[in-house]
Write a protein that binds this DNA or RNA. Structure first.
Lengths: 166, 166
DNA sequence: CTTGGAAAGTCAACAAGGCTGACGTAACTT
DNA sequence: AAGTTACGTCAGCCTTGTTGACTTTCCAAG
């Protein structure tokens, strides 16, 4: 059991050893985090990159390509390859902007929503199990540390995503 | 163990929306997590895979190739490519086992330790800042959730790594 | 109305780092 | 003596990232 909050500010949780354990925890947990969707995708022609695109299009329907570029942090060539296959396969619809016709607004089709749902269900099942096992207080701490770990600019992106209204 | 929160608790933290935020938090935080070492490595001939190898050899000096394979979860061909360059460049020493001469025991050289240190310093600096900002209780929750998110087998690997203190 | 520049798409080439399959060798185990 | 394990390696493939160069479309400012 990691230390109960040290009243005398012992800061035991900031030792190099503790920090290394945290680093390793991130490494192993991220493997688990991606494992289930990866398993689903490995039979299809898609990969993790497609999953990410589906996730964020689901999250922000009508988002533009450049919005997505900013969020995903990849080059447009890289994203375009992924997006093209999703559009070609009828999972994503790219509508020309009404106001600005250069823009493409992205939406999931029925088929796209189904795959997104399948991937998301698997990933959320793991998160839910972890959250349930850890309890609400641990979850709050988890989110706090992760947010503090983000680059400030990414943190804004993260916080800008639809909030869970109170 | 935190209590399974019976009827009284709202379980608001288990809504799909909360779970999605957790998923996104993992995504963005992992980007931050790897950003600093990646920046250091991008000037060299090395990448994230080399960093991981250095980290775990540092962590468990004398570990064997197959140990490392298990921990990293990649094929031997993939690891070998990385390991070969590290050995060729004099960052890692591979000593033939005394007891079992088929095994190679891996150690960081002086040069290897220096690079590991540089990468680790960068990564720990970010972790330290996040930990400090979040506080000990949040850190405990962070670790709890991450552990719960790992595959059971990986969790054992993780826990088998050198523990901190008593 | 013209023009500058942003947004998007595309082609080509390349690299890192995964993967499979096949094969070889040394050394340990039975 | 035979089988298994640990390691290395060759060859080839895939995904997903990268640069660089170029075109088309089209909004907006001069």
């Amino acid at each position: 059991m990691p230390d109960p909050t040290p009243s005398g500010e012992s800061l035991l949780f900031l030792t190099d050893e503790q920090l290394r354990k945290g680093i390793e925890a991130m490494f192993f947990a991220y493997r688990g985090f991606t494992a289930d969707p990866d398993r689903i995708l490995e039979n299809m022609d898609y990969g993790r990159a497609h999953h990410r695109a589906l996730h964020f299009i689901h999250r922000s329907p009508g988002t533009t390509v450049s919005n997505l570029l900013t969020i995903l942090g990849v080059t447009k060539q890289s994203l375009n390859r992924v997006l093209r296959s999703l559009v070609d396969d009828g999972l994503v619809e790219a509508r020309v902007g009404r106001k600005d016709k250069r823009e493409r607004h992205l939406y999931l089709t029925q088929k796209g929503q189904e795959l997104e749902r399948e991937l998301s269900d698997a990933q959320r099942a793991r998160m839910r199990a972890a959250y349930r096992a850890a309890g609400p207080q641990a979850v709050a701490g988890f989110r706090t540390v992760l947010e503090a770990m983000m680059d400030p600019e990414l943190r804004k992106q993260y916080q800008g995503l639809k909030e869970a209204g109170p």
